[in-house]
Amino acid sequence: MTPSETRARRLTAEQVRRGLLAGFVAWLIPGAGHLLLRRPRRAAVFFGLVTLAATLGVVFDGNLAVADPRAPVLTRLQVAADLALGPAEPVIRTALYGAPVYSRFGLESGRLSREARAALERRERRFFRRWNHYGTAYLLAACLMNLLVILDAWDIGIGRKD
């Protein structure tokens, strides 16, 4: 039996339920998973930092990732990382581009809808704004921080961490 199998066997159904619930709630609202697990101070700090980074990203004209046929694996990973921000991510995406566009696949062959093409154009234009690269760094930092917050909530939920 491998060590991971041993660890998996030791987890009770209750632990897994708590971990999954905490992780899901943390995905819904940054820090809420920690609040559920009675870590209000950490919850407040995580909520504040993730929200601050995401806000700075939007203020400084950052861009969210879209899957791109020129670098399919990396850009899909970036999109997955962005989605860790939770339901706020599609809201921000729609606010920035006018539509929740996630992919550039089919742009050259004309398979994308007019709405999606317009959203991608809006996104491309933002690259020329002065602070775009800094904004993108803040946005990506917010998404990756929330990914770590979700994993931390899972660890606390299953009892692997205090």
């Binding site: 700090v45 995580f46 930092l49 601050l52 980074a53 930092a141 921080m145």
Partner: peptide, 10 residues
């Protein structure tokens, strides 16, 4: 600063 506070709390 953001990342330092975040990882310190994590």
């Amino acid at each position: 600063a953001i990342l330092s506070v975040f990882f310190a709390f994590l």
